[in-house]
Computed example of a mutant assay.
Amino acid sequence: MPSSEDRDWAARAASGDQDAFRAIYRAHVKPVYWIAHGILGSPADAEDVTQETFTVAWRKLPGLELVNDSLLPWLATICRFQSANRLRLLRRDRANTADALDEALPDTVSVEDQVISAALADRIAEEVGLLDELDQQIFRLCAVNGYAYQAAAEELGVSHAVVRNRLSRTRTRLRGAVKEVRDA
């Protein structure tokens, strides 16, 4: 997605424009969901935390000073905090029931994992921002919105092969950025 869209949507949503906030939601709901799911491991809890993340974002948008042109790192941070809150609530609820505490439920959210996730989200957003306009649109449609190659090709007025090849190059580029963060 063009990074200027996030900045524009954030400014409009901060002044109460619900359509702009819907655009933010549509653009970022899937990555936020997968961050929550990665922490919580439960689709139902991830859905709840995703909704909580966007509720908090709506309240905090008027005071937001966007550091870069992408809202995703900010939303990812809210999501991680909401996920940590959900984990505490789940542990407390389970401790107060007759059932044994689920051993699969982590005791804490690793600060190191949160830092790596934030750095990774920042690095990916930065790398996507460096792509040309067509590659950004292909990435947004296929990787973020889940379009099939042919559907993205029709939407953008290019061939299936163009979408497949350009997305493949973008994924290779992003894998390099991910490796860079993980090796740091």
Rank of each mutant, 00 (worst) to 15 (best):
N96Q: 14
W58Y: 12
N68P: 01
Y33H: 15
I138R: 00
K60E: 15
E133H: 10
F139N: 00
V144I: 14
V67P: 00
V111W: 10
D107I: 09
D102N: 09
L130Q: 10
A121D: 02
D132R: 06
L66R: 05
D45R: 10
G63L: 07
E127D: 13
I124Y: 03
F54W: 05
R166I: 04
A46N: 06
G129R: 01
L101C: 03
R88H: 14
L89C: 07
A76I: 05
A118N: 11
T170S: 15
G146V: 14
D132K: 08
Q82D: 03
A121V: 15
A118Y: 04
A121K: 00
V162M: 03
S110F: 08
L156C: 04
A143N: 07
Q82L: 05
A151T: 11
Q51A: 08
I78S: 01
I116W: 01
R88L: 11
A118S: 12
V109I: 14
L71I: 11
L167G: 01
L134W: 02
L90I: 15
I124T: 08
L90F: 06
L90Q: 08
L90H: 08
E65D: 08
A46W: 02
R91F: 05
V29G: 01
A95F: 12
V115G: 00
V29E: 13
V109K: 03
V49S: 01
D69L: 04
A95L: 15
A44R: 13
D132N: 13
L72V: 10
A104T: 15
A152G: 04
Q114G: 07
P43I: 06
D113N: 11
I124K: 04
S42E: 03
D99V: 09
T53K: 00
E155N: 07
V56K: 09
Y147S: 03
H37G: 02
V162K: 03
S168Q: 15
I116Y: 02
H37T: 06
R86A: 03
T108D: 10
S83T: 05
P73I: 06
T108F: 08
P43W: 08
D48P: 07
S110L: 10
L66M: 15
T97G: 09
S159Q: 02
N165T: 13
D45S: 11
L64H: 11
A119C: 12
